[in-house]
Amino acid sequence: MVVAHDFLYQKPSTLLDALKLRAQYGEKCSLLAGGTDLVVNIKERRISPDIVIDIKGIPEFSILEERDGSIFIGSAITFTELIESPLIKSRVPIIAESAHTVASVGVRNRATLVGNICSAVPSLDSAPALLVYKTDVVVESVDGKRIIPIDKWFVAPKKTALQNNEIVLGVLVEIPNSENGTAYMKLGRYSGEDLAQAGVGIMISKNLEYKIAFCAVGPVPRRALKVEAFLNGKEFSSITNELSEIIQSEISPITDIRASKEYRRHMVDVLVERGIKLALSRLQGE
């Protein structure tokens, strides 16, 4: 099937040119990084942009580097680049771990982490990984720069806090200052390409501070603050009824073609327990 929709394609070489085009076309503009969502959306006629702005010609978007205790991941950085980056692996390993579970090799070679969070689908694998760190989304428009904390980024299913004159430059992930163990647990059915039926991101620091975030079990990916509060400072052995009740109060899964809400609820308990155990074993250097 061909793309039966005409649009203007622009590949600016400076950020300013891109921002001007973005300001000019607003909601009739689509931004192209990996294109793995965009092309499908255009082909399936879910969107019909007047202009597609390819951001890959702008050097700022291809930066992956450490900046003052944080890691900056530019909007054109692909999942494969994250998986292969020694910096990511050593400092924020859960990002590489979750990147591994996204789609298939071919898609990961093109798709970007920022593109992933811009899709804002409830099942997006990158979200729990970013949520367990202090992560900021850096956006810019012709009017200037804006920082949006990741927990304010996901507004509703498929809706983010991005304004239609803004472009995401990248995300800034703060490197935790204490030793920690992380794990990303994904409930999927296939070894091939598959969407998460539930996803849990976990980070545990040496002083038993827990960070836990979910995807695919509510309208938007989010931190489980009550679960964290309950666990903080405690040694973990297994899920108790009390903890399960708190977990269940933090999620609101639906039944769809991939799984029933009952199954998702059951599985989140299992994923949390197994994820915590895995993160702890990693913390202990196993």
Binding site: R189, Y190, S191, G192, E193, D194, L195, I257
Partner: peptide, 28 residues
């Protein structure tokens, strides 16, 4: 274990693409 043609209550096929209708890959 994997494949199923699923319809809505009004008879629209939900599994009309390869994202929703999963055939096993060699990895599975």
């Amino acid at each position: 274990v994997y494949e199923d043609v699923v319809y809505t209550s009004s008879g629209r096929m939900l599994t009309n693409n390869l994202m929703t209708y999963k055939i096993p890959t060699r990895e599975d």
